[in-house]
Design a protein around this nucleic acid. Structure first.
Lengths: 336, 336
DNA sequence: CCCTTTCATTGAAACGAATCAAAATCCGGT
DNA sequence: ACCGGATTTTGATTCGTTTCAATGAAAGGG
C-alpha cells in the first residue's frame, strides 16, 4: 500500500468518509469522541492528504507562480523571499521558475503554471509575454509584473523608481559638498541605466554651480568599472571629478579599485563614490561603499498582495502601478 | 467559463473523451483526420490539461522537491540549476523550498512535498530530519542528501570532498615553489573548515622542508580576512609566509585587501594567495584570485539522477554515496 | 459472401477528497 | 411515550483525466 486515503481512515475509525473530511476541515462540527477516534486512525495509518485530489475538487490551487530573470541575482532571491513569506501567511505556496533571461524557458514556465491552475502569476518578463498574459487573464489567472514598468497599464505592476534613485544618489553627493560629479555607467539602452542617469540630471537642476560629466562604460561589470577608474586616476588632479556616481555596485567596486591602484586617488577624501543596488559586497569593499538600496523583499510581498487581491475579485479589478522609492545607504565612501 | 475540459473538447470535435485523451497521449493510435479535428477543438477552446486531475489519476506526480539551506547562496542556486536542467530532460519539475537554515521551515516543506506526492526529495538538511526521511521512504518517497556526508549510510548522498580540496590548494602552492604556507580560516568547528585544513596538512606530508602555519579567524568574512591580512603585512618581511591558503573566497578577498593596503605586500610576487569556493567575485578582485571550485551544478544533476533511479526501483535499492573532487582554478594570485 | 484479423473509437470506471441534502441521533419538555 | 428542534453523521455525487475492455468498422482471405 503506497498511502492511505480517507476511505481507509474512515473504515478503521468506523465512520463515513464525510466525517473524516469534517474532522479535517470543520472540526467544530464533529463530536469530541469521534474526533479522537478519527485522529487515532489518521495517526496509525500515517494518512496524508492528497493535494491533487483536493485541488481537483476545489478547481483551483493554493499556489502562485513566480518567474524571475535570474535566480542567482540577490535582488530576485530577496524578492522571492518577500513573496514567499507573504504567501505563507495566506496559506499559499510560491512556485519559483527561473527563466535565466530566456524567452523559451519563460514560456515553458507559464505553460506549466497554467496546467497547475495556479491562482496567479508574478513575473519579471523577458520576452514579449503581454499577449500570453492577457490570454492567461482571460482564463482566470491574473498577473502582476515586478521590476518592470509596463507601458501596458492594464496590468498591475510593482517596481522601483530608478529615476528617484539616481536623483537621490547625486543629491547626496551634492549635500556633502561635491560639485564636479561624474556618472559612470552604460550602455544607456538598459532602462535602469538610462533612468538612473536621468535622475542624476534632475538632481543637478537644483545645483547650478555643479557640473555632471558622463563616462560611458561597455557593461555593468567590475572590469568596466576598473577601466573607468584608472582612466580617471591618470588624469591631472585638477581635471578629476570630486565625486562619482556609478550605475551599479559592480561598477563602483571596479572604479574603487581603479582609483586606488598604486596608492593613487584617496576615497572619499579626493573623490567620493556611490554605487547602486547595495549588493552584499559593497559593505565589505576596501572602502565600504555608499549605495542605493532597492526594497527587494517589499516588492515581492507587495506584488503578492496585489495579486491575491486581484485573484479574489470576480472581475473588474482596477490594475494598480506601485512604485517604491529606493533607499540611500551611506557608508565611508562618501563621508569625508 | 473558467476553463475547458476534455469533455468540452470531445463534444466540439464530435468524438469521445477517450479519443481526446489518445490524441494527447498516444497520437499514433489516432487517425489523421480525427487528430486534426480534435486539435482544432483544443485550439478553439484554449484547452489546457489539468495537472491535478492527471496526477490524481496517475497516483504520482512529475515533481521532485528540493530543500536548500539558503537560496541566496550561489552554491545552492547553481546546484538547483543543475537539478532543474536534469529534471527538465526527464520531464520532471523541481519545486524549490528554502529552509533558511530553519528546522521549522524545513519540516513544513517536507510536509508540503508529501502532500504533493512528489516523486522524491533532495535535501541539504538543517535539523535532524533523518527519522522523517525514513518515514517518507516507507511511504514511497525516496531522498538523496546533498552537500552533507551522512553518518547514516542508508541514504544516498552527493557531496564534495573538502579534504581533497584543501590538499589540492596546498599542493598547488607547493608546486609553484612556495615553502612557508599559512592557512587562514576558522572557526574550526565548521566541518568544511576542518576538512580543508586537514587536507592542507595532508599535502604537507609530501614536502618535508615546507612548513604550515595556522592563522585562525573568527568567521568566514571579508572583514576577518582583512584583519588577518593586515596582521601578516605588519610582520617583518622575513617572518611572513610566502603563500596563504584561505578557507574561503570571502576571507581571501579580505586577506588580499589587508596585504595590499598602502602599497604593502605584493601578490603574488611576495605572497601567493588561494581561496576556496570560486565565488563570482574572485575573478574580479584587484588581483584575480586562484580558488577551489565546487562542481555545484554537477552535484545537483547527479543527485537528481540518483533520486530518479531510486524512485523507479520497486525496492531494495542500494544507497550510493557520491563524493566529487573539487577543481583547481588558477588565476593571477598564485602565478609568480 | 462470410469469416477473421486489424485498427480506430468508445464509454464506463477509477483516482481521493470535499460537499451537502438527507437521515439519524440526541435531548429537554410535556 | 412522544414531539420538536438541534446537532451529528452519512453517503452519493462531483471535479478532469487516463485507462482498458468492449464495440464497431473496414480490410483481407478463402
Amino acid at each position: 500500500m503506497v498511502s492511505a486515503s480517507v476511505k481507509d481512515v474512515a473504515a478503521l475509525a468506523g465512520v463515513s468518509v464525510g466525517t473524516v473530511s469534517n474532522v479535517l476541515n470543520r472540526p467544530e462540527k464533529v463530536s469530541a469522541e469521534v474526533t479522537v477516534r478519527v485522529q487515532g486512525a489518521i495517526d496509525k495509518l500515517g494518512f496524508v492528504r492528497n493535494d491533487a485530489a483536493r485541488q481537483l475538487r476545489a478547481g483551483l490551487s493554493h499556489s502562485i507562480g513566480l518567474v524571475v530573470l535570474d535566480a542567482a541575482n540577490p535582488f530576485f532571491t530577496e524578492l522571492a523571499r518577500g513573496a514567499e513569506d507573504r504567501a505563507a501567511a495566506e496559506h499559499f505556496t510560491v512556485l519559483v521558475g527561473n527563466s535565466s533571461e530566456d524567452a523559451g524557458r519563460e514560456a515553458a514556465y507559464l505553460d506549466l503554471f497554467e496546467q497547475q491552475r495556479v491562482r496567479g502569476v508574478l513575473i519579471s518578463p523577458v520576452g514579449n509575454v503581454i499577449p500570453r498574459l492577457e490570454q492567461l487573464r482571460r482564463r482566470g489567472i491574473p498577473t502582476v509584473l515586478v521590476d518592470r514598468q509596463t507601458e501596458n497599464l492594464s496590468f498591475s505592476s510593482v517596481a522601483v523608481d530608478d529615476l528617484a534613485g539616481g536623483e537621490m544618489a547625486v543629491a547626496h553627493l551634492l549635500s556633502v559638498g561635491r560639485q564636479r560629479i561624474a556618472f559612470v555607467g552604460g550602455p544607456e539602452n538598459i532602462r535602469q541605466v538610462a533612468d538612473r542617469l536621468s535622475g542624476a540630471r534632475k538632481a543637478m537642476e537644483s545645483a547650478p554651480r555643479a557640473s555632471l560629466e558622463v563616462i560611458p562604460t561597455e557593461s555593468l561589470t567590475v572590469l568596466s568599472g576598473r577601466a573607468a577608474g584608472e582612466a580617471i586616476r591618470l588624469r591631472p588632479a585638477a581635471e578629476r571629478p570630486d565625486a562619482i556616481f556609478a550605475a551599479n555596485d559592480l561598477l563602483a567596486v571596479g572604479v574603487l579599485q581603479g582609483l586606488m591602484l598604486m596608492g593613487g586617488v584617496q576615497v572619499p577624501e579626493e573623490i567620493a563614490l556611490i554605487g547602486y543596488d547595495d549588493i552584499e559586497f559593497s559593505a565589505a569593499a576596501v572602502v565600504p561603499l555608499s549605495s542605493i538600496r532597492q526594497p527587494s523583499a517589499l516588492i515581492g510581498s507587495t506584488a503578492l498582495e496585489l495579486l491575491l487581491r486581484e485573484a479574489s475579485q470576480e472581475s473588474g479589478f482596477a490594475p494598480r502601478q506601485v512604485v517604491f522609492p529606493p533607499e540611500l545607504v551611506v557608508r565611508a565612501s562618501t563621508q569625508a
